[in-house]
Amino acid sequence: MKKNITALFLFVSGLIFSQHIEEFKITDEWLAKMEQLAPSETTVKNVAKKKILVFSKATGFDHWTIPHNTEMLKILGKKTGAFEIHIAYDIDSFEKNSLKKYNAVVFNNCNPSGPKRDLFWDLLQMNSNLSDNKIAALSKQYETNLLNYVASGGGLMILHGAITVQNNSKEFSKMTGGSFDYHPKQQEMHVKEVDPKHPLVQAFNGNGLTHVDEPYFFNNAYFDYNFRPLLYIEIDKLEGMKKEVDEKVNYVSWIKRHGKGRVFYSSPSHNAQSLDHPELLQFFLDGLQYVVGDLECDDSPIGK
């Protein structure tokens, strides 16, 4: 009898888990739910409307949540009235004059292909007849444009897999706070606040967030800890680790300054089901307010 109960529990648990990660299309019902769950006002009020460029073109792994995140950001902007959201897929968005139009850029899971891991290279190769040498030079120029844009005061918000946009660039890694290394299998995890009193994690009310996600691990500039961490996961609670680590925690979200600009990174989330948590929507909204300079908070790096 006990064996039957155990088997039934495992079967039901498996069904619940599969439902968490099952892909689904955007419907009117889902959009209505997002409208209801989204915050109706910003944390910092009475601020000028900001223009946000949301770049959503992947050339490598195509996260199924890209269109869901796009709709979510549009809803946040419209419902609060604080942001004018512009969706883009073309590399021309990273021309100097184009970037100047916006207060911040959001990279929405725009993963490039490997092993080069260079989004600008991929886009140029797909949409031009230029030589490899010319593509390399232009790709570097677009990267420089973005680095200078942020250093001059622009905001940059990076969602989940978009940490790989220029994954092999030391300059890009230094600006963003790290590069993608690998992730174990998707699993349920409890993401916790590093400092529950920090203004950017107030949405979680000290409870963190339990959801199914990919536990991202990072390398390159990450281990300089040149950022202010916001959320973490406990490594000893994870399954399927591919490498031994000395650290007890892994940071999965942080903020940092780059010159006069601000960067916000959130590894959560790989799955659109996580957007059912209103606290995560508030977290993203606060992140937008941070990168445009409306929400001031401690973003000093913790260092090694």
Rank of each mutant, 00 (worst) to 15 (best):
K74G: 13
D276Y: 06
N145V: 03
Q19K: 09
G77F: 08
L200D: 05
P112T: 11
S267T: 05
H270P: 03
G77R: 12
A104K: 09
Q187V: 09
I75F: 05
S139A: 13
W30M: 11
L281H: 02
F55L: 07
H190K: 10
G77T: 10
P39L: 11
V54C: 07
W254K: 03
L280A: 07
G60N: 07
N103F: 11
S18L: 15
S266Y: 01
E23A: 14
K242V: 09
L119K: 00
I52A: 05
G114H: 07
G240Y: 09
K197E: 12
E35A: 09
S300W: 02
N207P: 01
Q187I: 06
R257I: 05
V150P: 00
F264I: 03
D299Q: 04
N4R: 13
N168G: 11
L288S: 04
P39R: 10
I66P: 03
M189E: 09
W30P: 10
T6L: 13
E23S: 14
P112V: 09
D181W: 14
V212F: 06
A162K: 03
G60P: 06
P39Y: 11
H277T: 02
L119Y: 00
A137R: 00
L8W: 15
F217E: 10
L15T: 11
A82Q: 10
Y182M: 12
T65M: 13
P301Y: 06
L295A: 13
R117I: 08
Y102P: 04
I302R: 10
N97A: 09
D213W: 07
I66M: 08
N127S: 08
V191I: 15
M72H: 02
I87W: 03
V105P: 07
P199R: 07
L76G: 01
M34Q: 03
K33C: 02
K134N: 01
K256I: 04
V106W: 01
K45I: 06
I135S: 00
E239Y: 11
Y290K: 08
K174Q: 14
S93G: 02
L231P: 00
N133L: 02
A151R: 14
S300D: 12
R117W: 13
E84F: 12
Q141W: 04
V249G: 00
V191G: 01
I135K: 00
R257C: 08
M72A: 13
E84D: 15
E279H: 07
D299F: 06
V44N: 09
E22P: 01
K78G: 03
N109D: 15
A7Y: 14
V191Q: 07
N129L: 04
I235N: 11
P229Q: 03
F9G: 00
G155C: 02
M1C: 10
G208T: 01
I255R: 03
S128N: 07
